[in-house]
Simulated scan of single mutants.
Amino acid sequence: MKLIGALNSPFVRKVRIVMAEKRLDYQFELEDVWNRDTIMKANPLGKVPCLVMEGGEAVFDSRVIVEYVDTLSPVGKLIPDRGRERTEVRTWEALADGVMEAAVLARLEQTWAGRSEAQRSAAWVSRQMDKVHASVAAMSQGLGDKAFCSGTHFSLADIAVGCALGYLDFRFAHIDWRSQYPNLEKLDAKLVQRQSFIDTKHPAG
């Protein structure tokens, strides 16, 4: 398998962590997402991550990829097969993905070179960051005093939340979520010690 992605993408990081936790071998191909001619050969949406199968078929959207990948190996089951537990884990993932999506959109509005300063919308950035702050607060409330997001076991929910918090540290370091939400800090401290998180940490700068 080949995973097409970018080191700065929190969604790519989520997939890479899942692949590592599942102990699956794959080729990682770095991609410039602005080079549409290249990425669109594999994914018509022009987005990463994109998983290319041995037969050339492409699987895209991080949620679809991680669900598929979790079925490839019995090692470290990350998504419950059915019922309320499965729904809980996928809802955590949706919440964390929402944080990442809003943060990415806010950063693009603030930094994209294709737009002048006069064209940037502070109102749009504020709207996206409101989603970030509300969702991080919801994460803290949902976590409570549990060891992991979905109870006592490490799951995709924790990977997604860890990637969301890691992206905030990477691109929005001024947000002091640790002092506001000590339970998230405690969870994050456990996650960043896992080799899968260490090996996929966002690059400096």
Rank of each mutant, 00 (worst) to 15 (best):
M1A: 08
M1T: 10
L3K: 05
A6I: 01
A6C: 01
V12L: 11
R13H: 06
K14M: 05
V15F: 03
R16L: 15
V18Q: 08
L24F: 02
D25N: 15
Q27N: 13
F28Y: 13
D32A: 09
D32F: 04
V33T: 13
R36Q: 12
A42I: 11
N43P: 11
L45I: 10
G46Y: 00
K47C: 12
V48K: 01
P49H: 09
C50G: 08
C50M: 10
V59D: 12
V59R: 05
F60P: 08
F60I: 13
I65W: 02
V66W: 04
Y68S: 14
Y68K: 15
D70L: 12
T71W: 01
T71K: 10
P74R: 07
G76A: 13
I79N: 05
D81W: 03
R84I: 13
T87I: 15
T87E: 15
E88K: 12
R90H: 04
T91C: 06
A94F: 06
L95M: 12
G98P: 07
G98T: 13
V99I: 15
V99K: 05
M100G: 01
A102G: 08
A106Q: 04
A106S: 08
R107C: 10
R107H: 08
E109Y: 03
E109Q: 08
T111W: 05
A113V: 12
A113F: 05
A113G: 12
R115N: 07
R115Y: 03
R115M: 07
A118Y: 11
A118K: 14
S126T: 14
R127Q: 03
S135Q: 04
V136M: 06
A138N: 03
M139Y: 02
S140W: 00
S140E: 00
S140Y: 00
Q141P: 05
G142N: 09
L143V: 05
L143H: 00
L143D: 03
G144E: 14
D145T: 13
A147I: 14
C149H: 13
T152P: 06
H153W: 04
S155Y: 00
L156Q: 07
A157Q: 14
I159W: 03
V161F: 00
A164W: 00
L165N: 03
G166F: 04
G166V: 06
Y167I: 00
F170K: 07
A173T: 14
R178F: 01
R178V: 07
R178H: 02
L184S: 00
V192M: 10
V192Q: 11
Q193G: 09
Q195M: 07
K201F: 02
K201P: 02
A204M: 14
